[in-house]
Write a protein that binds this DNA or RNA. Structure first.
Lengths: 223, 223
DNA sequence: TCTTCAATGACTAGGATACGCATAGTCTTT
DNA sequence: AAAGACTATGCGTATCCTAGTCATTGAAGA
């Protein structure tokens, strides 16, 4: 975990640095606002601690600069007890938390732990096979970068196929996952929808992705 | 944005609820700790506000319960001025921020905005999509530089849509975050409000931003 | 090897339905 | 009285499914 501290008061800055290093954080200390912004933009820190009262560059400008650059690193700002509105402005400008001087070092550490804890557990989530992509989050389907509009059932069917690429999927398997329990086994709805999908996905393309396994069912495959 | 307030003092609780509702948040109020924990576990809130001094269940237990369930909803705790160690314990138990009673309502609101901002994807203060802009801090909405007046509910709905741009939002998802617990599932309120929004935002514009995904829900998107 | 033919799947058209839109009206709060 | 939140209802249509015909497959027999 690497932390950048932007603080002009040498004494306070060094104190924070030592305390953080004792907690085994990697710490860079910068006493100049403009230079600090540069460092924040150039290096991928895990956390920024910014004093709002700096001589060269107002602390708020640092916040704005960082957020404009689409950097989402958590930012903790330091303010004086009196600067209530500054503090509110800071939070609205993109800061994640603040601490008023003077503060207990234990509290600073607790807040840092809280900020760093939010680990991004994002999953990629996009299903892909050859040049066909399906994004369950946005329900967006593309082939070769081109958008494809699907109805609800078509989409449900395609998603099921894509989640089981390369495997033979029998009609009972398909109906069980794409239709609900009162599915009539003696119809050809599945065939019909596979056909719909083919029209939208394979029609006119060199590579066919939907294959029929005669006597068994269907399969999605690049080969 | 839907918020759960766990606060045993009826007077304080109601005060907070009303203040938040005036800011377009959907608010559930609970005066009992154990019940509050249940609600927090059952519903996907955007934020929890927990008073640390509760009669039935210590506030800390609520925090632990929520975090043990792997729920990462931001939590703001309320403490008395004196309880410094409580506060540190609270942050370590998974709280994201605290406020000491008595507090200024403006500060509570600012902190809520800060907490909610980092919860959803990425947003440097102002939410923007195409020429539509929404500023959560001022609750100001503009399209093409032109101000648009929205009611509380219209605003709440639009904010939710804008915080999840490009994703399909189902009716259950929308009701869960824009309305509170006494929402009636069997009505078409959501449709009606989407229609209201369309009238104010898309009506007469070349580019439509609100799209309906038939059979699924709605989506806000520039394309 | 070629034909035949039954089984299986591909495709199409049209009717039924459910979905979402819009509008008007009710209720509540200010 | 006015504004906002919500309910109720009718209408148009995208979507779903049925049912029927047409095409393909592959094995059996000539």
């Amino acid at each position: 975990m690497r932390i950048l501290v932007i603080e002009d008061e040498t004494k306070v800055g060094c104190f924070i640095k030592r305390a953080l290093e004792e907690e085994s954080y990697a710490v860079d200390l910068c006493e100049d606002g403009a230079k600090g912004l540069q460092m924040a933009l150039n290096t991928n820190y895990d956390l920024l601690i910014v004093d709002l009262m700096l001589p060269s560059l107002p602390g708020l400008e640092i916040l704005k600069g960082v957020r404009q650059a689409r950097i989402q690193t958590p930012i903790l700002i330091l303010t004086a007890q009196s600067q209530v509105d500054q503090r509110v402005k800071g939070l609205d400008a993109g800061a994640d938390d603040y601490l008023t001087k003077p503060f207990a070092i234990d509290e600073l550490l607790a807040r840092i732990r809280a900020l760093l804890r939010r680990g991004s557990t994002e999953s990629p989530g996009v299903l892909q096979i050859d040049d066909l992509a399906l994004n369950p989050a946005t329900r967006e389907v593309t082939r070769g970068g081109q958008r494809i509009d699907l109805t609800l059932k078509e989409y449900a069917l395609l998603e099921y196929l894509m989640r089981h690429t390369g495997r033979v999927l029998t009609r009972p398997m398909i109906s069980e996952h794409v239709w609900n329990q009162d599915f009539d086994t003696f119809t050809n709805v599945i065939d019909v929808y596979v056909n719909y999908l083919r029209n939208k996905i394979d029609r006119g393309r060199a590579k066919k992705l939907i294959h029929t396994i005669r006597g068994s069912g269907y399969m999605l495959k690049a080969d």
